[in-house]
């Protein structure tokens, strides 16, 4: 893991107040490390300047891979490897391949996306993330700053920012 970071964070009781604070921080050009919330807060992403997730592209790619795998495999089996006539139909009976092709498209896309999701988020079985505050998964909305190398006055400035924007608590933690 990377070296320890010193984090200054404020906890807000309400997502609306927190979002106003984030807006203010962006106006003041404060460098927010991350925002942690107990549930997905809609409208936060554009304020925070997060670009849209590209996860669905992974879904498409894996889905296409599933389509090709299923269709080409069945084609290979019934035209090259071991052609068998079923019910007088042609070897390469495309309509009959559709259900399995569809199922594998969905299967590949889903598994691929889920694996991609956990990988890019750095989450997975056995991962232990540093916890800023245990109430973040309950009812607190946390705005965090990485204050490594910040001067006294910069930190005071951040603290002032928290008190001006209605944070209910401000803490420092090394993670």
């Amino acid at each position: 893991m990377s070296a320890n970071k010193e984090v200054l964070f404020g906890l807000y009781d309400d997502e609306v107040v927190m979002m106003d604070a984030v807006k203010k921080a962006k106006e003041d050009h404060l460098d927010i490390m991350d925002v942690y919330t107990p549930f997905p807060v809609h409208g936060l992403d554009p304020i925070l300047g997060l670009s849209e997730s590209r996860l669905h592209i992974a879904g498409f790619v894996f889905g296409a891979l599933g389509t090709l795998t299923a269709f080409l495999f069945m084609t290979w089996v019934f035209t090259r490897d071991w052609p068998v006539i079923f019910g007088g139909k042609p070897y390469w009976s495309v309509p009959a391949f559709i259900p399995i092709t569809f199922e594998l498209t969905v299967l590949f896309a889903s598994i691929g996306m889920v694996v991609t999701f956990y990988t890019i988020c750095g989450l997975g079985p056995g991962v232990t993330s540093p916890c800023l505050d245990e109430r973040i998964t309950d009812d607190k909305f946390c705005v965090a700053f990485n204050t490594d190398g910040y001067s006294e006055s910069q930190i005071d400035n951040l603290k002032r920012f928290f008190s001006n924007t209605g944070a209910s608590e401000v803490h420092t933690k090394v993670i």
């Binding site: 807060v41 925070l48 989450l123």
Partner: peptide, 9 residues
Amino acid sequence: FGWTGSAKH
């Protein structure tokens, strides 16, 4: 899985 509640996540 080490979930944090980060906005990006």
